[in-house]
Design a protein around this nucleic acid. Structure first.
Length: 353
DNA sequence: TAGCTCTTATCACGAGCTGC
DNA sequence: GCAGCTCGTGATAAGAGCTA
């Protein structure tokens, strides 16, 4: 199905509130497969080891406590799956092509719950890709309402309005069936507050982790966008009214992220001299092949999506603002690599010649 | 292909904690 | 004491996968 007709909503639980656990989950997995039971145990052990880091963080919510049935750890693994960072098959878990770049991103050495710029950039993009239909209305609501009570009181209405607008734009009953189903489901809610706890609190905490919401205001129980958050939301609103989110994420997301959250010293990728641009991409390709190419194969190759996500996020770390199209153009011009893109698959590969 | 089993998504509840 | 927040866990229906 065309992604335009996909309902982008992640199933969350009130427990899944700290994005730092998602990063640690990727680190625990590394490049291997782990049984889900083992991963749950390791994640619980990691959480215990870093309990003091969470206590030093602005909020202790979302702590993974050891429990006989591993519910908390399991909820985070499901969140990582919904963000398409991990895949689970036959009770074995591994990072996806999209999840792999997470292993290579800059880390905050003092506290793993404080995300680096690269981690924020990467995780925010995953959240927008997979949860836009809850996150965008929530941001819109925070613009008007600043208390939890008001947000809870208006969330259902604003999501229903948002979904109805999406249906009007699709203008096709069959293709908009997922949106219709969700509307019907939300209309039937009898214990609204109980469901909203699991929907609103995790997202508010993600926004705090990403510093889209103001931490100082939050300490006074006020939910308010930071200046950077406001600028980013303005760009999102413009996008929502004009173009498809996937096209925006590929070609404008990194530029917008850099201009809103980094600001000082950022430059667009296309202002680099061609030689310098080629050198940067070749260095990133070497790094990517050493980290992501499957071993013991006669020819080295990596997924195009892995490289695009990896390279664009790393460029953000260098204060260079890229777009997928620019990177694809460079890849097409490199004689020592073969780059093939398959639009129908939204992916391709890069092979060393 | 029908029926069974397993998994997942959603809904639900009760209780502990915290701050006023 | 009360309301709001947080947490852990369970129930159930629907969907997916397997098998005869």
């Amino acid at each position: 199905m065309n992604k335009e007709y996909t309902l982008r909503i992640i199933n969350t639980n009130i427990k899944t509130r700290r994005l730092g656990y998602i990063v640690s989950l990727a680190d625990i997995l590394g490049n291997s497969f782990l049984l889900v039971d083992d991963l749950q145990g390791k994640l619980e052990a990691w959480a215990e080891e870093h309990k003091s880091d969470l206590e030093r963080y602005f909020s202790k919510s979302g702590f993974i406590k050891k429990s006989p049935k591993h519910y908390p750890a399991r909820r985070y693994i499901h969140l990582a799956k919904d963000l398409r960072l991990v895949k689970i098959s036959r009770n074995e878990c591994a990072l996806t092509k999209i999840g792999q770049p997470l292993l290579t991103l800059d880390k905050n050495k003092q506290n793993p719950f404080e995300l680096s710029t690269e981690q924020k950039c990467f995780l925010l993009k995953r959240i927008l890709e997979n949860d836009f239909d809850y996150l965008f209305p929530l941001l819109r609501l925070i613009e008007e309402c600043h208390s939890a009570q008001e947000i809870f009181g208006n969330f259902r209405r604003i999501v229903l309005d948002h979904l109805k607008t999406r249906i009007e734009r699709i203008d096709d009953i069959l293709k908009s069936s997922l949106f219709m189903k969700r509307i019907q489901l939300m209309m039937k809610w009898t214990q609204e507050k109980k469901y909203l706890e699991h929907i609103i609190y995790p997202r508010l905490d993600w926004l705090l982790d990403l510093q889209i919401l103001d931490l100082e205001k939050f300490k006074k129980k006020i939910y308010q966008l930071t200046c950077d958050g406001k600028a980013f939301f303005e760009a999102l609103k413009k996008m929502e009214a004009e173009i498809d989110i996937d096209a925006w994420l590929e070609d404008y997301y990194y530029e917008t992220f850099g201009r809103c959250f980094i600001k000082d010293g950022v430059i667009s990728f296309d202002t680099l001299k061609r030689e310098k641009g080629l050198r940067v991409i070749c260095d990133l390709l070497e790094e990517a092949f050493s980290k992501f190419s499957p071993p013991n194969l006669p020819f080295e190759h990596i997924s195009a999506n892995t490289f695009l996500e990896f390279s664009c996020t790393k460029l953000i770390g260098m204060k260079i603002l890229p777009a997928f199209t620019q990177i694809k153009n460079i890849l097409n011009s490199l004689p020592m690599y073969r780059f093939q893109w398959q639009p129908s698959m939204h992916d391709g590969f890069i092979m060393k010649i």
